[in-house]
Structure formats: structure tokens, C-alpha cells
Design a protein around this nucleic acid. Structure first.
Lengths: 146, 146
DNA sequence: CGGTATAGTGATAAATTTATCCCTATAGCT
DNA sequence: AGCTATAGGGATAAATTTATCACTATACCG
């Protein structure tokens, strides 16, 4: 751990919110958990671009900030589940809006972001969350057929 | 300038949006411009926590990403104005939601963020935007009286 | 036993973002 | 002439965030 040397900026609601969502994977984590993907191993599989380590660290921050709750089951091998707190849930409209805005403007955004001179490569594996949801849907349909 | 060595993550709309808003002052800049604070010098005064340099760099990125348009008046001393593009305006519901969420939970968030062991200091100058708006309101009233 | 899976952590390097400083140019004011 | 304000930019240091790698521990399966 280290100590911040630059003071936290907390002037507007904007900065407060930004601080909570500040982390490459935090919105994705909240989104995943809201969809019922709760166990660390599931989450890791869902976000192949991230390492276990980072996800763990960012989940810890979300937990410390009160957005997420962690349940540790007294089992071996270990079992852990995350869930959103009430205030965590209250963030979902923002997460959803970001998701929708990005998808709605995907074509434009991909163009401008890849024009960006700093950009050399892009990781664009179709979002695993959608794949996951599609699978769940299939399972549901199969059960329904039985 | 430098080149990114880690590929941009573009899986979900979430990541696209995050990329556009990625910068300490970008949401605040969009917010300010949407409120009619358009000239660089005004913006700098509005966000005393940031240096001219950073604001300039982040405005440039917003411009490159198509969220903001820059008008340069052929005058001396120079005059420049920023304004939101159509797609920039379409971000405002998200910015507003972030602003509102943060303000609604300010008490809670200030508490958890200052519990954070990394936090040593907090910069909490009452948001200049509000001060600015209050002044504008006063001016409006004075004119109305005349 | 050797491989799998579970969840977690420490040390350290690399990448990226912000902050600091200093400089250019022009016009108006005193 | 020296001060203000306008807008901008280069070079570089510092801070912060991510990535990498290596390790602990236990149970189940063949």
C-alpha cells in the first residue's frame, strides 16, 4: 500500500462518483455482480483481459467503499460470493447508461479511438458477459422444455 | 506523446464510455461547457485544482474524440471557445446522473473515502460551478430588476 | 502421487496519467 | 518599460495504476 500524495478531489458529486468507479474494471465488476456472476473464479473467467490479482484488488476497493459485500463460506476448497449493497445497486442506472451509450455509439467510438495516435492495438473480444447471458438463456430454455 | 503498450479494451459499451470519460477532469469539463463556460480562461478559474496544462490536454482529447468542438477567433489577444458536439451532448445524462448520485450520497461517500487508508488529505473547495451558477443567477436577477 | 480447482497475497516492474516549470506571442494599461 | 491578460506548448519529474510472477493451502480425482 502507499499513501496518496495528491489530495482527493471531492468538490462535486461528479468527483465523488468518479472516485468510486475509478479503476479499469470496476464498472465491469459491478455489472457482472448485478447479473448474478458472484464467485471470483466466475468473474475471472468473464473478464479474460484482467488478471486475478487486479480483479481482487478492485473488488476489495469496491468492498471498502461499501458498494459490494463479500460472503465467505466456511468450506474447503474456499467459496466466496460477492453481492451488491443497496448503495451499490443504486449505481446501476449509471452503469447501464454507460453501457448503452457506448453500445449505441460503438461504430463512431471505435473509429475515433483507433484514430487516436496513441492507440496501437485494441482488445475486442466480444464481451463475455453477453456470451454468458446467452448461455444462461439456453439453459433456461432447456429446462423449460423438460 | 507515447504509444500505448497495453491494448485498448473495447469489449463492452462500458469500456468505450469509460475510455471517453477517462481523465481526472473530463466529466467536469463537459459539465462546465454544457453550462456555457466555454473559454479556456474561464474553465481554468472554475477548476482551481487543475493546472492550465492538464485542462488543455484533456480538452484536446475530448476534441479528438469528437465530444467537443473548438472555435478559434482570429483576434488578438486570442479568443477560443469550446462547445459540445451532438454526441457530446448525448453524454450529459450520464454526467448529470453521476453528479446527482455523488451529491445524493455525499455524506456516506465522504466517510468511506476518508476511511480509505491511502487517503491523507482531501481537497474540498465548494464546487466552483455552483458558485458560478449562483453569480449568474444574481446577475440575472439584477437585470430583471432594472 | 501429480494434476485440477478453489481463494488469496507479496514483491516488484512497467505503463500510464498528472503535476511542475519554463518559454513563446500580442495587445492594452499605467 | 513593466505589468496584466489571452492561449498554447515542450521537457521532465512524480504519482498512481496495472501487470507479472511467484508463492501458500486444501480437497477431489485418477
Amino acid at each position: 500500500m502507499y499513501e496518496r500524495k495528491i489530495p482527493l478531489t471531492i468538490d462535486c458529486g461528479l468527483h465523488l462518483t468518479k472516485e468510486v468507479l475509478n479503476g479499469k474494471w470496476k464498472p465491469a465488476l459491478l455489472n457482472a455482480i448485478s447479473l448474478g456472476i458472484k464467485r471470483p473464479s466466475q468473474i475471472v473467467r468473464l473478464l479474460p483481459g484482467a488478471t486475478r490479482r487486479v480483479l481482487h484488488v478492485q473488488l476489495k476497493e469496491l468492498e471498502d467503499h461499501g458498494m459490494v459485500e463479500k460472503t465467505i463460506y466456511a468450506q474447503l476448497p474456499p467459496k466466496v460470493e460477492y453481492s451488491l449493497t443497496e448503495i451499490g445497486w443504486s449505481l446501476m442506472p449509471i452503469i447501464d447508461a454507460m453501457n448503452q451509450w457506448g453500445d449505441a455509439h460503438r461504430q463512431f467510438l471505435e473509429a475515433v479511438l483507433s484514430q487516436d495516435p496513441r492507440t496501437t492495438q485494441v482488445s475486442k473480444s466480444v464481451c463475455q458477459v453477453y456470451r454468458h447471458m446467452a448461455e444462461e438463456r439456453k439453459k433456461g430454455e432447456m429446462k423449460a422444455v423438460k
